[in-house]
């Protein structure tokens, strides 16, 4: 569904991704793991067009998105939940959700505000609160809810567990698992190994801007050498 072929990208003069190849199959959960600064988040930002490619090609469902604008890529159904969550503080929870739903394709719409509230009941009590009044966990739920309002065909999640309490992480895990069962394609960037291993059908380890290992979570657990080399600190 999503194919990255030999891509290169980075920030200004600094190149972070050096010829990365990755394929995410439709309906699967694919996790990118690796140490800090190896290019995991950069990969996501390149997929959504926030950073432009200096080489290589990205295809989403057969469409070449390499030169498209970020908003055109978003309209193809690529929804991105940034690490910083980026909730609009000046807007209420409801307004944050409606904003994202406005540009979603009308036909076959399956997500609306009510369904997001069913999905994340914590948000229901906070509907009229400003975005700046939410806790970290609520912000994360709103950020995911906002992405779902876009009727995504793939969900890109950048460290959804960062800075959250274990009980909230558990809740988010359950919800993402539920989305997986419903057939949502997810590309997940994580530092939390157990969280990622529990969700992912496939894991790719990123090192120095390339994919250095690929396999299932079980294979990674037994491959202590790869684990040590690319994840150990």
């Amino acid at each position: 569904m999503l194919e990255l072929k030999n891509i290169e990208s980075g920030y200004g003069e600094t190149r972070v991704i050096h010829g990365l190849d990755l394929t995410v199959e439709a309906g699967s959960v694919h996790a990118l793991l690796g140490r800090n600064g190896v290019g995991k988040s950069t990969t996501l930002k390149t997929i959504i067009g926030q950073l432009s490619l200096t080489a290589g090609q990205i295809r989403f469902d057969g469409t070449d998105t390499s030169d498209l604008n970020p908003y055109d890529i978003a309209r193809l159904g690529v929804a991105y939940v940034p690490e910083t969550r980026d909730i609009f503080g000046a807007l209420s929870v409801r307004e944050n959700l409606e904003l994202a739903g406005r540009l979603a394709p009308a036909e076959g719409a399956s997500w609306d505000v009510d369904r997001v509230l069913d999905f994340f009941p914590n948000l229901a009590d906070r509907m009229s609160n400003g975005g700046h009044e939410l806790s970290g966990g609520e912000q994360q739920m709103l950020a995911i809810g906002r992405a779902l309002m876009m009727e995504p065909r793939i969900l890109l999640l950048d460290e959804p567990t960062e800075g959250l309490a274990p009980i909230i992480i558990q809740q988010i895990f359950t919800k993402l698992n539920q989305l997986k069962t419903e057939g949502m394609t997810i590309l997940l960037v994580e530092q939390n190994f157990n969280f990622a291993a529990g969700l992912a059908d496939m894991i790719s380890l990123v090192g120095r801007g390339q994919i250095v290992w690929q396999g299932t979570a079980d294979a990674l657990k037994t491959d202590t050498e790869a684990h040590e080399k690319w994840l150990g600190v």
């Binding site: 959504i48 067009g49 926030q50 604008n69 970020p70 908003y71 978003a74 309209r75 991105y80 940034p82 980026d86 609009f88 503080g89 000046a90 807007l91 904003l99 994202a100 540009l103 979603a104 906002r146 876009m150």
Partner: peptide, 15 residues
């Protein structure tokens, strides 16, 4: 308001 708050985010939301 969203563009004022965070323009790259609005682009990623398809605007």
């Amino acid at each position: 308001c969203g563009i004022h708050g965070n323009e790259p985010r609005m682009r990623a939301l398809g605007v």
